[in-house]
Write a protein that binds this DNA or RNA. Sequence first.
RNA 1: GCCGGGGUGACUGACCGGUUAAGUGCGCGGCUGCAGACCGCGAGAAUUGGGUUCGACUCCCAACCCCGGCCCCA
Length: 485
Amino acid sequence: MMIYSTMSGKKEPFQPMHKNRVNIFVCGPTVYDDSHIGHARTYIAFDVIARYLKHKGLSVFYLQNITDVDDKIIQRASELGIEPAVLARKFERRYLEDMRTLGVTNVNLYARATEHIPEIIGQIERLVDLGFAYETETGVYFDESRFEDFGKLSHQTLEEMERHRIDPDPTKRNSGDFSLWKKREDGAEVTWDSPWGRGRPGWHIEDTAITETYFGPQYDIHGGAMDLIFPHHEAEIAQMEATSGKKPLVRCWMHTGFLNVKGEKMSKSLGNFMTIREMLERCDADAFRLFVLLAHYRSPIDFSEEVLEQSRKSLERIRHLIRIIEEQLEMPGGIVESEEVDPILIKAKVGFLEAMDDDFNTPYALSVIFDLVRDINRRINEKTVSKKALKDTKQLLGEFGGIFGISFSSGLEMSAGKEEDMTRDLIKLMIEIRQKLREKKDWELADQIRNRMKELNVVLEDAKEGGKYTLSEEDCLNRKAYNLR
RNA sequence: GCCGGGGUGACUGACCGGUUAAGUGCGCGGCUGCAGACCGCGAGAAUUGGGUUCGACUCCCAACCCCGGCCCCA
């Protein structure tokens, strides 16, 4: 399996450090507000990566931090006149709800920064003892000039990075030195005791404190979006490699591309964002997952209603085949019987695995799925497919869906409450009546029924034997004009 | 300025030095009373200029353009 690493700038064979075990850490959110769909893109991508690694038989431990102490949280909380911790817990809960709705279910442990303060302090102490960090009146800083590898991830030199820093703290030795501990005597803020007085952790230290706690000084994969490469990940490398003396901190650095709107990065500051919640009000989570997977994880993707709608229709195409297969399987006989595994299925399976093994090429894997769908559709029409092959197809699509975290199943047999049972019976009644009318060639009345039903979101489809129906789903982001920006 | 990622058909978006990517949309045909779904066929592509090559969307060089990072950010 090949994975692209930001460090080397190319695809490298992936070998876990410990036999079958993969330790993966992905930078989590700062919980001061609802997450937007750009965050969702990254977390869906890594969810699928974790799912695939598991599918390969690896034992995956997926760790994510929750930044629950930070300037933005403190600021937002004071604006709202509530405790920072209350604010952080609220948005952490909402974030976790969003992830569950999106099917992002493979994180083994969410680690809060505030629950690792002793580990953070311990790591800073070691850095100070080793001479990589120093204390000033304002806090404790990492001395980048002491760490010669600084810049190796973002491929920059120290001099290059020192330019254009905005208002460096005057007590720092080098303008690029970053904060490990911020001294804060102010009683209103969130603070902890430390060897350097009361204060709170700097930006980067929580991640290495957390990963060291659960993984040790080295692990397999570190993920995040591209904007974290510098300075955040660079700082993590400096902190941990300086502390432990062991290199590299991680074997493989993986970074996702942005979700853009009209070519620009979606972000809070630009105001062009849509929260996950807003999106989910209008769109099936599975359609959004497909939208994300239709592009490679490292490529930027441009979000628009139109493309999301295209994704929804593409998903329908797959689901429709499953529906057809289920119908076919219920029909007695009439189809060629065979016990052989169909070559079409082998081709699909091999193609899918090859695509995923090649740096998680989900767009290509999807094209393999669509090829399979087309091939099976054709064979169903030609009546040259065995029931076994249909069962296998359904099973295989289920397997692919499981890796993508997308339900490809038809959705027709949803929870059947009494009312839904009755609705179904009523629809079937209408189909029967229409059938009689059609036999009498009363097209006008038959069409009228079909049109009226369609207005009620029940789409009737005529077929030789009777007829069938689907409940049409709302367009992803239908009608309601939703203005981005 | 430095670093990184890009420029592919109407839209989204991959692979690969020579063979159809794929999806959506569109056109034609089939099936249909019609429609839908489905099937078949089809149109349509590679920012520009050089170079390497028998042959380049794919490699190299240059130019142009876009996006991102360098304070915070998935």
